[in-house]
Design a protein around this nucleic acid. Structure first.
Lengths: 351, 351
DNA sequence: TTGAAAGCGCTAACAA
DNA sequence: TTGTTAGCGCTTTCAA
């Protein structure tokens, strides 16, 4: 079992691979490089027997086309860059999956980068992708301003904004109607008899938070014609579990005590649920709770969490579609594809 | 608010961008292309004043280096391919983040592809990446056999296997000791007084399941010197929430009834928790439960789930490190970096 | 139907 | 210190 003297002999690396070029293939097949190229790109214009011979040579040499050389000669890079805020966030990975599913069928390979909200990292990645001559970019901008993307625009790199509306018609974009989403959640609670509502929201600097609040106001206006409802907004510094947990105290101290808590996202809601559980408040019997995002685990909690679903995968597909149009269609016009959020009612808000 | 007759006039696309080459820069700066190249690659060997003039021209023209041309001339592609089973799985995205964090500092851009276990898709992606001349590949192979990766090996593309051990010394690999992880969980339960254990495991065809079972057996051997313990393995068809929920009935029917349920992953555990909750069985008072993977939501459940953590991020970093060594170090030898799983004890198994 | 050759944008050896 | 030039691997006229 154990070797005599030395440790187990490490196996030497495989014999160094000499890159095979189209020239090598040509030599083996006994044709010119032009013919090999033709076999690869327009097989129909070359004689049957020659084609077979060349294909055979490709096989035997293990030739793999060099896309860089191909592209240099005027070809396409077959590459799309995707820049998201956080790869660890399921919302973004779902979007990535959607985009990939569409672009993969067109032969594209995706470059993915995660900025974690850093404008500097974003700039670096975009730069690197431009150097790689990506044919397009799908991006969730890190900054509130789109100035960082000006280069892409002036250089004419097809770009689609993810979950962010372009201010002018500078870019295509795919978004979800957050106003509508906020309205859906609030209205649902009103309609199931909750007239005193606590709305746990994040900082106003976040567009999503602003929009969702606006949706809540809309629901209030519409419902208050027939019923008297009251909404108290409770602001927290960030959309995290901890912030949700910490806010419970304030909610329970409110007078009159609300009968429902609407949270600006699922993580907050999760924190709220934990806070309530530790204080023996039952959900939904004593207090109803809703979240937003419909993260995968929401349905697995007890009680399962009512939430507002965003069609992340479809967003990715739509973004890919817009990009493809911009790449191929000379008459392309920028536009915004807006998705509708969907209320998913579960136990946590069931009457 | 509404336009007169037509919809809002779509803004015409930006003026077509004429690609700027090193020649354009040279012309503007009044130097040769060689000098521009020198300014870009070895700025020290060119005169201060010339350098400034060239840099100025780069700026004013908006020049962006073409990596394809650069690479064709013998440069590196600065690109690494990552192929995972499922981008939607947090375990893989964490690994990706780890790899990215390391490789980004070296100027690499990552291509990411998700195979969803399809050998065919895997082959396509690997092929595309080879055509792009990635400098290396990080991959979780879709198939049990590594035959699909033979091409990478013979062509000498540095390749690191993620969460999969290479059979011979064909590739570097990063793995987690699943035997140890299984042992940790089982031993923890034994030591907290649970002598009758139900082990909910997935199909034996999955390596992880086999290894974790082996770990359980090891724990049994070691503990049974001092105590009499009994483990009953309950097999399910897949590691999903539904399978966990369905298995509860069988567990509760067992005689003698176990005092703890060890699950082969967190999703199963989640299902078990739900099943128990719906039958009014209290956790951990009536029955202790553990999972495996330590997915993010585990700590947010009530009761919070005891689990075995796998250092996904660190796996990614290690894989990147191995790859960099293979890329740069002529004396590189393939090796396996094995990580230790870590038991995270939470309420669900607290005595 | 095939071959010869120019050239994509860039770098590096060599010359000036 | 800077310019000239060959050539990386490939595609695509144009000529044979």
């Amino acid at each position: 079992m154990s070797p005599k003297k030395n440790g187990p002999e490490p196996i030497a690396p495989a014999a160094p691979w000499v890159p095979v070029t189209i020239r090598d293939v040509a030599k083996v097949a006994g044709v010119s490089t032009g013919t090999v190229s033709n076999v690869l790109n327009r097989p129909d214009i070359v004689a049957e027997s020659t084609r077979r011979r060349v294909l055979q040579a490709v096989e035997s040499t293990g030739f793999i086309r060099n896309t860089q050389a191909h592209q240099l000669r005027g070809g396409r890079s077959q590459t799309v860059g995707v820049v998201v805020l956080d790869v660890a966030n399921p919302f973004f990975t779902e979007m990535f999956r959607g985009a990939e599913s569409r672009l993969q069928t067109e032969g594209y390979v995706l470059m993915l980068a995660s900025t974690d909200g850093s404008v500097e990292r974003e700039a670096n990645f975009v730069r690197a992708m431009e150097e790689h001559r990506v044919e397009g970019v799908l991006i969730t901008p890190a900054a509130a301003e789109l100035g960082a993307l000006a280069g892409l625009r002036t250089r004419g790199v097809p770009t689609v904004l993810l979950d962010r509306k372009a201010t002018a018609d500078e870019f295509c974009s795919v978004t979800v109607d957050d106003v509508r989403g906020g309205e859906l959640a609030a209205r649902h609670l009103f309609e199931t008899g909750h007239l005193e509502l606590a709305f746990v929201n994040g900082p106003s600097s976040v567009r999503q938070c602003r929009d969702r609040r606006q949706g809540v106001r809309k629901a209030v206006r519409s419902v208050s014609k027939t019923k008297k409802v009251e909404v108290t907004e409770v602001s927290v510094g960030a959309l995290t579990v901890r912030h949700g947990e910490d806010v419970v105290e304030r909610i329970l101290a409110m007078s009159p005590r609300p009968t429902a808590v609407m949270c600006a996202n699922d993580l907050l809601a999760l924190g709220v649920l934990r806070g309530l559980a530790s204080r023996g408040v039952r959900v939904p019997d004593d207090l109803a709770v809703t979240g937003y995002d419909d993260l995968i685990f929401g349905s697995m909690l007890s009680p399962a969490l009512t939430s507002v679903r965003q069609p992340a995968f479809e967003l990715g597909v739509a973004a890919a579609e817009l990009l493809l149009d911009e790449v191929r269609n000379p008459d392309h016009r920028h536009r915004e594809v807006r998705f509708e959020p969907e209320l998913v009612v579960r136990t946590s808000s069931r009457p």
